[in-house]
């Protein structure tokens, strides 16, 4: 464990809590892509199947449970409790365009052809594109609530911190997880234009609105 990974996990947890608080307090999920949240729940479900078979540490187990709970609670709030405020007409990204190629790729490119390993690989590839429906929705509506931009900032920051964690682990313990690193780079790149808008607009107190 290193400081980059801890900061990354904290940033990830903070993002999820920010989103939950936003929906819970405003009792509204307008502007939030339910499809992205479904993909995140799927990412954690397929990645944490080893929750009971592969004990890494108490921290690892506790965080996995918290992440799973947050993900499913968020999906429940969007499609269950506050579904009347969910603007599905703006959440139109075609998930099959992500799920089909990623499923194929996880069968082709993985560390070992076993169910758990293919599902883990699937979750890594899926996570790199899971935010696309949300970014697509923002580009479609042309704006995002400030709290939503903070959610996206910490969500993008977490995987950027994981890149630093992988560099650190490569130099200190010769650890190199190519599938995770390549996917993590792709995932972080998807946030770049958002990061630019976040820094130049939101941090200056302006509302995030796309040109």
């Amino acid at each position: 464990m290193n400081v980059f990974r801890i900061l990354g996990d904290v940033s990830h947890l903070l993002a999820m809590i920010l989103l939950l608080l936003k929906i819970w307090r405003s009792k509204c999920c307008t502007g939030i892509s339910g499809k992205s949240q479904i993909l995140f729940a799927l990412v954690f479900t397929t990645r944490y199947l080893d929750l009971f078979t592969n004990f890494v540490s108490l921290y690892n187990t506790v965080m996995k449970v918290i992440f799973l709970l947050c993900a499913y609670l968020t999906v429940y709030m969007i499609y269950g409790k506050f579904r009347k405020t969910f603007d599905s007409e703006n959440d139109t990204f075609r998930l099959e365009f992500l799920l089909v190629p990623i499923t194929g790729l996880s069968f082709l490119e993985n560390y070992s052809f076993t169910p758990l390993e293919i599902l883990w690989t699937f979750s890594i590839y899926l996570e790199s594109v899971a935010i696309l429906p949300q970014l697509f929705m923002i580009s479609k509506t042309g704006e995002a609530e400030t709290i939503t931009t903070h959610y996206l900032f910490f969500l993008g920051l977490y995987r950027a911190l994981y890149l630093a964690n992988w560099i650190w682990r490569y130099h200190t313990e010769n650890f190199y997880d190519q599938i995770a690193v390549v996917s993590g780079v792709v995932q972080t790149i998807f946030y770049c234009d958002f990061f630019y808008l976040y820094v130049t607009k939101v941090l200056k107190g302006k509302k995030l609105s796309l040109p």
């Binding site: 080893d50 592969n54 690892n60 996995k64 560390y111 076993t114 997880d177 995770a180």
Partner: peptide
């Protein structure tokens, strides 16, 4: 990569 099934990251 790490040996299969031994992923220690979240």
């Amino acid at each position: 990569g790490p040996e299969p099934g031994r992923h220690d990251e979240l």
